[in-house]
């Protein structure tokens, strides 16, 4: 297993969580959008749509557990990285789909996640492993509607150029909410975990996560609005408070 790449267990790609039908519709939309736009992005989008359709037709659409991992080198010490992550109330600051995490006691927490139509999905999680400055693992409690687990490791760079932060997250679809969860959380698990760790790095290094949400712009029109969704900009939420761990070196 190559620890530097995000991966999915089994031989299924992330698109399986949307189902091949969903992918086909999306692919067709991309293709149509790309062709009608007839401008700079058109070729790329139409091509992407075509590729997506081809990939989707090859896969058979059976859902499996998503297991995805992302590693970023962060210009900080394992101690600072561990401290920011270990306080689970910070997780909502860098996990795009997490609305809040309330810390109940030293090992238990309640997670609230953005669901469809802004509906909240809740579950309880417990910390299963906690090695100071090295590793934290957690999982949802067995009676939760959502079966998920995750872990994060902090390893110092050999030449002292920072800390490798590796996060692994698993979602097991199952139970009544499985379909909703799979669609909302699991449709791009690789993308999600990568962006979460990227934002964790930004919080530690820059004290905030970069965003353009809420900035001024001219009339977007239909094309501008579609492009915003295509570029996944709706998830780049601002972090209103500067991270405590951020040390101003510049």
């Amino acid at each position: 297993m190559n620890p530097y790449n995000s991966q999915i267990s089994g031989d299924k790609g992330p698109q399986d969580f949307l189902g091949s039908k969903g992918i086909l519709i999306g692919a067709a939309a991309l293709l149509a959008y790309g062709i009608t736009r007839r401008s700079k992005t058109s070729l790329a989008l139409a091509t992407a749509g075509g590729l997506l359709a081809a990939t989707s037709l090859r896969s058979n659409g059976n859902s499996q557990a998503a297991h995805t991992r992302a590693t970023f080198l962060v210009n900080t010490s394992p101690e600072k990285a561990y401290a920011l992550w270990r306080d689970f109330s910070n997780l909502a600051r860098f996990m795009r789909h997490v609305k809040s995490v309330e810390v109940l006691d030293d090992t238990h927490s309640e997670w609230v996640v953005r669901g469809p139509m802004d509906k909240e999905i809740r579950w309880y999680a417990e910390i299963t492993e906690d090695v100071k400055n090295e590793r934290i693992s957690w999982r949802s409690r067995p009676d939760s509607l959502v079966q998920t687990s995750g872990s994060v490791e902090f390893r110092p760079h050999r030449a002292g150029r920072g800390t490798y932060v590796s996060a692994t997250v698993r979602y097991t679809p199952g139970g009544t909410l499985s379909k909703t969860i799979a669609t909302l959380l699991g449709k791009h698990p690789q993308f999600m975990v990568r962006e979460d760790v990227r934002r964790f790095k930004a919080l530690l290094e820059a004290g905030e996560t970069p965003t353009t949400i809420g900035q001024s712009h001219g009339p977007r029109g239909v094309h501008g609005s579609v492009e915003q969704v295509l570029f996944r900009e709706t998830g780049n939420l601002a972090d209103p408070q500067a991270a405590q761990a951020y040390s101003k070196t510049a």
């Binding site: 080198l73 210009n75 150029r161 920072g162 993308f191 990568r194 962006e195 990227r198 790095k201 930004a202 290094e205 820059a206 004290g207 996560t209 970069p210 965003t211 353009t212 570029f231 996944r232 900009e233 780049n236 951020y246 040390s247 101003k248 070196t249 510049a250």
Partner: peptide, 23 residues
């Protein structure tokens, strides 16, 4: 951002943290 490995190397136009659409 001034504090990522690229900025620390004075590769300011390669900052790791200023592009929200880095992906």
């Amino acid at each position: 951002c001034g504090n990522c490995p690229s900025c620390q190397d004075k590769l300011w136009s390669c900052c790791d943290n200023s592009n929200p659409n880095a992906w």
